[in-house]
Simulated scan of single mutants.
Amino acid sequence: MNKLTIAALFLGSGLSFSACADTFAGVYVGAQGWHTGVTGGYADSENTAAFNFDDKTNSSFYVAFEHFVPFVPNAKVSRTTMDSAGTTNLTTDFTFEGNTYTANTNVVTDSQMTSTDLILYYELFDNDLVSFDLGVNGKYIDGTFSVEDTQSATSGVKDFSGIVPTLYSRFGVGLPFTGLAAYAEGSYLSFDDHTLSDYQLAVTYSFIESLAVDMTVQLGYRNVSVDIEDLDGAYADLEYDGVFAGLELHF
């Protein structure tokens, strides 16, 4: 057996192992920067006020693990920041954490909120042309709402956290041999008095596809709507939306 034959067999074995490894198990790691516009408001009762918020760049990180074991779901964990702040001239009286802010008062509002998602899902279709995932998402919302009167320095802070279960799905299409693809991904459900939706639409381009790692850039739009009623004593009707850019690694 000559050296050329041995090299060909070694290369073929390596390609076969890589293909099998990718079929049997794969890890996806991604990060996104999200330019966010925010509308709505919050309170510690049902009487929420509408606030003005400045645009802000938020971030999102995720890790997903896919495998070949039958009946065992794949898993994805993601964490998204949804921070916002602004100054509002109140049009009506507003009560928050025991303090009353009268109409025509300027208040500074600051919302620090994160969403940590634990997603369990099945791949119903998965090929170069079409993919479709379906599962459930336990969304853990953790945050702090604050309001401060700019003149009197009167302020109030409300901490809260809780889990909101949602449905999860992802649909993707691809153009084979081009590196181009697109996907729609979302979590959504109305549960008790909470209504929450989180969806994104994006086009992607895989600019590196190798035996060791695939690298893909993403460009898309994301919308998160958070309507919570007495989640650990917090009430909110907030909508976050804007464009995002991201990078994903597939091992």
Rank of each mutant, 00 (worst) to 15 (best):
M1C: 07
T5Q: 15
L9V: 08
F10D: 04
L11W: 08
S13G: 09
D22C: 08
D22T: 04
F24E: 14
V27G: 00
V27P: 03
G30V: 03
Q32G: 09
G33W: 09
G37D: 10
G37C: 10
G40D: 04
A43N: 07
S45N: 06
S45P: 03
E46T: 09
T48L: 12
T48K: 09
A49Y: 00
A49H: 01
F51A: 05
N52A: 10
N52F: 05
D54K: 08
Y62N: 08
E66C: 11
H67G: 01
F68L: 01
P70S: 00
V77M: 13
M82Q: 14
D83H: 06
G86H: 05
T91K: 04
T95S: 03
F96R: 03
N99K: 11
T100F: 03
Y101A: 01
T102L: 06
A103H: 00
N104D: 11
N104Q: 12
N106A: 06
V108S: 15
S111W: 13
T114V: 09
T116F: 04
L118K: 10
L120E: 12
Y121I: 12
Y121M: 02
E123P: 01
D126I: 15
D126Y: 07
N127R: 01
D133M: 01
G135L: 02
D142S: 02
G143R: 02
T150Q: 15
T154Q: 09
V157N: 13
G162N: 03
I163T: 15
V164I: 15
P165Y: 08
V173E: 08
P176I: 09
F177Q: 01
F177T: 01
T178H: 10
L180S: 00
L180Y: 05
G186T: 03
G186W: 07
S187Q: 00
Y188W: 15
F191N: 07
F191V: 14
D193I: 08
L196Q: 10
S197M: 13
Q200S: 13
L211H: 08
L211K: 05
M215I: 14
L219V: 15
V224A: 12
I228W: 14
E229L: 00
E229W: 06
D230N: 14
D230T: 14
L231H: 12
A234W: 01
A236E: 09
Y240W: 11
D241Y: 00
D241C: 05
G242K: 00
G242N: 07
V243E: 05
F244P: 05
H250N: 11
H250V: 08
